[in-house]
Structure formats: structure tokens, C-alpha cells
Design a protein around this nucleic acid. Sequence first.
DNA 1: GCATTAACCACAG
DNA 2: CTGTGGTTAATGC
Length: 227
Amino acid sequence: MFENPQCENCLFKSHAAKFLNIKQIGELEQNCALADLKKGDIIFKQGIFSSNIVYIKQGIVKLFVEGPYNEQILKIAKGPSYLGIPTTLAEKYNRYSAMAIDNVSACFIDVATFKSFIQENGKFAYEVIIELCRNEINLLNKCVSRAQKNARGRIADAILFLYNEIFESKTFNIPLTRQELGNYVDTTRESVSRILTEFTTDKIIDLDGKKLTILDFEKLKLVSQRG
DNA sequence: GCATTAACCACAG
DNA sequence: CTGTGGTTAATGC
């Protein structure tokens, strides 16, 4: 009833997987399972043993940790993207959780198989490293944003991030509640609400519930820098 | 002092 | 789940 996935001709094949040879593709097909997830589905959970690397083919996910008071959103990501490489390769128990915040199509890859590709196939490994590097640079930028910008600047950054990295369109539905957006940019849901209405009255954005349109891109970038 | 910023609380859709 | 108003604390002229 469950067939092995067809990795060779996958429409969402990762950059790294393009370098796998026939034998390795065969191993991947044997050791990987597909899942279609809905908004709100947990992909993996903090504190729980995990033996899979997840590859998101399509869809949007959030990575978060359960902090002492709130859930802290570490990252919003969309497919195609690997998920959980740091926490699965370096740790026994997951250090953070991942949840689908949209419909997601994901592959769960056996970690031993994934490790063997890294050890046997330099080009595959290189592509994986590049993805990890990009993630790290993004996190560094977020550190600076968090430490040195005020709430307006951080929310402007979040809007720019959603535009640049996730939707690539000036109109999109914010995939998070105000509370989650607050947890993402280190502020409260009240401040998010207030600042978004400020941006609306300043004609920087247009807002209708979750539907956001960037009206004044230059001004938004200015707010990102100066708050 | 005075202004700004943002968290916390409460209440209403 | 959101938006808004009041209050309060911290910080910087």
C-alpha cells in the first residue's frame, strides 16, 4: 500500500540530491518515507529522540523552542529545504521542534542513510554544508536585528524576510498569528498589533487581517534600519 | 524633569 | 485571536 518514493525523478529534488549516483538514489528510495502534513502538524518535537532528517519539498514550517515563558520561534522556512540536520546529527534528542504552518509535503530520511551520503559523496556533502552556512548567516543577521533594533525595526525586518525569502510577492497572507509574530521578533502580541497599525497609517503597508501588502518598500527598508 | 519605548493588564469584539 | 487604552518602568537627553 505504501510505495517507495521515486527520488530520481522527484520534481522537488534538492540541490544536494542531484549529485547522488544511481546506487545512492536507490538507497534513498528504500530509506525515505513521504508524508503530507497539514497546518499545525508537528514534524518533530523538542526533547524527543529522532532518527530522521526531514526534507521539506513544499510548504512553510516554523522551528521553535519551548522557552521558560513562551515558545520562541527560531526560524520560518519553506521548501525546498532540509530540516533538523543540526539537531539530528549532533544531538540524540531534538533541541527544537518543527511544525507545518501551511500544507507541507515532506520526506523523512533515515539518518544513517543520510550520513553515509555525506561520507561517501563530497558533492552532496558540499551542498548540505552550503545550506547550513546560509542558515548560520541568517541566524547571525537575526542576532544583530534582535540586539540592536527596536520593535518597529524588527517587525519591518520580519516583513522584509517574508517578502524576500518566503513569498517573493508584495502581497501575502502572514502565516503566523500576532502572538507567533511576537515570539518570532521578540516582542508582545500587543506591540505587534500596534506597530502593524502604525505601518498601515503611515502607508507603508496595507493590512486586512492576515493579508499584508507592502506599499512603500523603500520606507520599509528605512524603518528596518532606523526603527 | 520630560519624552520615548515597550511590557503588562484589562476589556471588547 | 485581535485591537486598543491605561499604566508603569527603564532609559536617555
